[in-house]
Design a protein around this nucleic acid. Structure first.
Length: 588
RNA sequence: CGGGGCGUGGCGCAGCUUGGUAGCGCGGGUGCUUUGGGAGCACUAGGUCGCAGGUUCGAAUCCUGUCGCCCCGACCA
């Protein structure tokens, strides 16, 4: 391809809306153009990158026996109503774009395809003899993100590979899960990016085991925690750890003290010389359930710890045996009489009488860190009074003991208490799930097993954010001059820069190398523009082609420069040797 | 949705406080010079100042409304 024909427009400055380096470089290099908030056009160079990634994915998945398909983007509402996800995905802050057609039928743009594929599988697969199958597609997905940002990192329209597997047994699902894990590691390695695999919460999608593949980068939106020996790594939403032990409260006789104005743990500790880890913090939360009912939660946790809302939500779901749509803190506006700032774990249910629409009984949960305190300080349920030197038996016990705390960097690891957790930021590029039977049950997708009876499928699902991966690669591989594409996903493998196209010798030699390399099967870009050499060098750096051949002042003696983009190492050699050396480097 | 900010040639911005008919840098075009790291000079094209009302002799500038976009948070397979 000739740069003169490439519609290449590079920018010296980046647009004001690009905040992270990968976004800036992709815009400056003319790879993407924003059309509206969270929606981008992939320009020709970018499309080549995306196709490279696509091909790697296809090769690896096909090698595992996966089947490529293309599923519809518009989904009928009733399909999503069957799994109970229509409400949650379209109402309130739902991410599913939805509309009505001219007959008034409700439709949604697919943010994911469990419903569609499960119905199709249910209709197509009759017998265990047809199992297992693993179906995937690579296509545009739509999610009406509340706040799109960082270019392709969190966009509303994006390219995703999603695969769904169907099995006759859990063991078979697990073996495919491992196979997919291997395929993913291969894919990311071939794409030239470093990923960390972390345990993840399976979230709204439901299911058992779930792991995410993260590209570590400071611009990452997810916080991940990794043990110092590397044996444990998890998304913060999921991470379990052992909190550091607090300073035990010295013996003292139980009493109730006045604590006027000390309505936060920080203030209480400062004025009374306690430590936050000697206090039981009580948090009131309202859970809104799938059936519309509202369940108040009273959560107790050690004062220096933070609540993990994902763990809490999962914990509540389990209790009430249905999905929790959302949780929010309960405030003074909700319950006027509750002594916020002085609440104890034994706050009476009668305080709920104020709001008749809510369930009239708290679900009381106590985090392990609070339950383990032998003596503690806590609210007295009277405004401006706290109890000190109390123990659990004095206030009716710790209720249910659960893990609802946020793991923090510096915490001890559960697999080895000699190890501590360190924190990194990550960009999620892949996610694998064991879904179980959630969707097959909801949609009545079943097969006939060996014994002749109907059984719902065991399912797995596996995603890769293709467009996000491309940007993550840039986030991980660039320097002050521009992008450095990993060779396997670079839009071209080599760029020939003719320093001065007015010089016939240079032009002829450049064109000869161009043809030779193409004949050898390389993907070659030739910068034949009537620009000054400096401009072409800057552009070549910016767009990040891994190899560059400069045909310039030494061309009269048949010599060219071969330059590696990543470290700028330069070799002056004959054009034949340059070709040979380049082929060796690329095909080694 | 809450908080903050911004809409002025393709891009980055100034002008707005104190109303007087729009400017700078980059980019585009033409010509001459230059030619290995985003060249110099000259000429040139390109703007309903987001949109709609209002105030005024006069609005990019003041007022009201509205739309769009960005940042922080909440949110997010």
């Amino acid at each position: 391809m000739r740069v003169s024909r490439l519609m290449l427009v590079t920018l010296r400055e980046h647009p004001a809306d690009a905040d992270i380096i990968s976004h800036q470089l992709l815009v400056r290099g003319g790879f993407i153009k924003r059309v509206t908030s969270g929606i981008y056009a992939y320009m020709p160079l970018m499309w080549r990158v995306l196709q490279k990634i696509t091909h790697i994915i296809q090769e690896e998945l096909n090698a595992k026996g996966c089947l490529e398909t293309l599923l519809p983007q518009l989904h009928p509402a009733e399909l999503w109503k069957q799994t109970g996800r229509w409400q949650g995905y379209t109402k309130g802050e739902g991410i599913m774009f939805n509309l009505k057609d001219r007959q008034g039928r409700e439709l949604g743009l697919g943010p994911t395809h469990e419903e569609v594929i499960t119905r199709i599988a249910g209709e197509s697969i009759k017998s265990y003899k047809q199992l297992p199958v693993n179906i995937y597609q690579i296509q545009t997905k739509f999610r009406d993100e509340i706040r799109p940002r960082f270019g392709l990192m969190r966009s509303r329209e994006f390219i995703m590979k999603d695969a769904y597997s169907f099995h006759s047994s859990e063991a078979d699902l697990q073996s495919t899960y491992i196979e997919m894990n291997d395929a993913y590691e291969q894919i990311f390695t071939r794409c030239g990016i470093d990923t960390v695999k972390v345990d993840a919460d399976s979230g709204a999608i439901g299911g058992a085991a779930s792991q995410e593949f993260m590209v570590t980068a400071d611009a990452g939106e997810d916080l991940i925690l990794i043990s110092s020996d590397g044996k444990y790594s998890a998304n913060q939403e999921k991470a379990d750890s052992i909190a550091k032990e607090g300073k035990e409260l010295k013996e003292g006789s139980p009493e109730i003290i006045e604590t006027k104005g000390q309505n936060t743990i920080e203030l209480l500790c400062r004025d009374k010389f306690f430590e936050p880890d000697q206090v039981v913090k009580v948090i009131l939360i309202l859970a809104i359930l799938e059936d519309g009912s509202k369940q108040p939660i009273l959560a107790s946790i050690r004062g220096d710890q933070e609540l993990n809302e994902v763990k809490l939500l999962n914990c509540i779901s389990k209790q009430v045996k249905q999905n929790v749509i959302s949780i929010k803190p309960i405030s003074k506006e909700d319950l006027k009489d509750v002594p916020f700032g002085s609440i104890g774990p034994d706050l009476e249910d009668s305080f709920l009488n104020e709001v008749s629409k809510w369930s009239q009984k708290f679900i009381r949960l106590t985090d392990r860190t609070a339950a383990d305190l032998k003596l503690f300080i806590c609210g007295s349920n009277k405004p401006d009074f706290h109890r000190i030197f109390f123990n659990w038996s004095m206030i009716g016990g710790p209720h249910q003991i659960v893990d609802i705390r946020k793991a923090q960097p510096g915490d001890l690891c559960i697999h080895d208490q000699e190890q501590t957790l360190i924190e990194k930021r990550g960009i999620e590029v892949g996610h694998i799930f064991q879904l179980g039977k959630k969707y097959s049950l909801a949609l009545g997708a079943s097969f006939t097993n060996e014994h002749g009876s109907q059984e719902p499928f065991w399912m797995g699902c596996y995603g890769i954010g293709v467009s996000r991966l491309a940007q993550a690669a840039v986030e991980q591989s660039h320097d002050e001059s521009g992008i450095i594409w990993p060779i396997n996903i670079s839009p071209f493998q080599v760029i020939i820069v003719i320093a001065n196209v007015e010089e016939e010798t240079q032009r002829i030699l450049g064109e000869k190398i161009y043809k030779d390399l193409q004949d050898k099967g390389l993907e070659v870009l030739i910068d034949d523009r009537k620009e000054r050499a400096g401009v072409k060098f800057k552009d070549a750096d910016l767009i990040g082609i891994p190899w560059r051949i400069v045909v310039g002042r030494d061309s009269s003696s048949g010599k060219v420069e071969l330059i590696k983009r990543s470290n700028r190492s330069t070799t002056l050699l004959s054009c034949e040797s340059a070709t040979k050396m380049l082929l060796a480097e690329i095909f080694n």
